[in-house]
């Protein structure tokens, strides 16, 4: 059992995250808690940890969708724009429907976000399938189109969302005050659902087959159009859900939300071991990839590096992480092959 866990592809990434966490804990130093006066580690405290997970959660949710698209051999550059359009649409709908209706507002908001995400994903999927243009081009186009729709319809204002949404997104769930675990739990739930979809369902297996070899999939009687459309729909749904979380958590939505997120999202999937040529990837790893990227950003703050270097450091870290992952995959393959050779 232990060996099985150690051999799983997520272990390497999880170890890197834990290792980086340990290093941060060691070098972070302490501060005195204002209330109790106890010394508290600057990194290893519940507030910072949950804050880091919260930062990761919004694009980790999208990274799960993106990793499914990438496994199918596609790419979705429009997720940041779907996020913005979903958030803005929800905020406008709720503003126009009058005041805060509590649970009704929450459900309506969720429905609008997820619905907009679904429609945008469906649009991407249909365009990819019926225009037969590479998804990079299609989603590059819809990235600007959807952002533009969000811009025009919101008139570039930042729109407040009803308080009850924020109350839910910032619920402490019995943890101490100023601890907000809801986004983190959503991220975990989405990653688990994504993992189950990919590893346990017929559709998930078809996504791997299509990404690995579309021709052989066609010769095996798979419905390729349906597979392709559904991966973009899933990606859109994830973006819509992330937008609901984000807009609720921060209390407002604007057309400039999540600008550039598509690249963080793709980076998360790739750091999580997804292959851009299709056929490889994991939902849990994509989430861990998102956490790792946020943790690297966090470490710049914790270790008091010059924040101006953030982009340079994150860029280097992404390349290093992918190279390390490839190296360890090769080592692993060689080890397995040696073991197989000994048996025979």
């Amino acid at each position: 059992m232990l060996r099985k866990i150690l051999a799983s592809p997520q272990t390497g990434l999880a170890l890197i995250i834990v290792g980086l966490g340990a290093v941060l804990t060691f070098f972070a130093g302490t501060h005195d808690d204002r209330l109790t006066g106890e010394a508290v580690n600057n990194f290893l405290n519940s507030h910072t940890l949950i804050q880091t997970a919260t930062d990761a959660s919004f694009f980790a949710v999208m990274a799960v969708g993106a990793t499914i698209v990438i496994i199918s051999g596609g790419i979705d550059l429009s997720v940041g724009s779907i996020y913005a359009l979903s958030g803005v649409t929800m905020a406008m709908v709720l503003r126009n429907s009058g005041g805060d209706a509590g649970a009704g507002s929450i459900l309506a908001g969720l429905a609008v976000c997820v619905g907009v995400g679904f429609l945008c994903g469906l649009l991407n999927g249909l365009l990819v399938v019926f225009l037969r243009v590479h998804p990079f081009i299609i989603t590059l186009g819809t990235m600007w189109i959807l952002r533009g729709i969000a811009f025009v319809s919101s008139k570039a204002e930042s729109i407040l969302v009803p308080q009850s949404l924020t109350t839910v997104a910032k619920a402490s769930l019995g943890l101490g005050a100023s601890l907000y675990p809801v986004p983190m739990l959503t991220m975990l739930a989405v990653a688990i659902v994504g993992a189950v979809y990919l590893t346990r369902t017929v559709m998930g297996r078809h996504v791997f087959a299509f990404g690995g070899n579309p021709e052989a999939s066609r010769f095996s009687g798979l419905r390729l159009d349906r597979i392709q459309i559904s991966v973009y729909v899933i990606s859109g749904l994830c973006a819509g859900l992330a937008a609901f979380m984000g807009a609720s958590f921060y209390g407002s939505a604007s057309c400039a939300d999540a600008t550039g997120y598509e690249l963080y999202v793709i980076a998360s999937a790739v750091v999580g071991g997804a292959s851009l040529s299709g056929g490889k990837g994991s939902a849990i790893s994509a989430m861990l990839g998102a956490v790792l990227i946020v943790l690297i950003r966090q470490s710049i703050r914790t270790l008091r590096f010059d924040q101006n270097y953030e982009w340079i450091i994150v860029g280097c870290a992404i390349i290093i992480a992918v190279v390390l992952d490839q190296g360890s995959a090769q080592l692993n393959a060689r080890r397995l092959a040696r073991a197989a050779g000994k048996e025979s």
Partner: peptide, 19 residues
């Protein structure tokens, strides 16, 4: 090119049409 998804396992390949 047409028969197998080479990156998938032997087992998954053999059951692909009947999943």
């Amino acid at each position: 090119r047409q028969g197998l998804v080479l990156d998938m396992s032997a087992e998954s390949n053999s059951t692909l049409p009947v999943l």
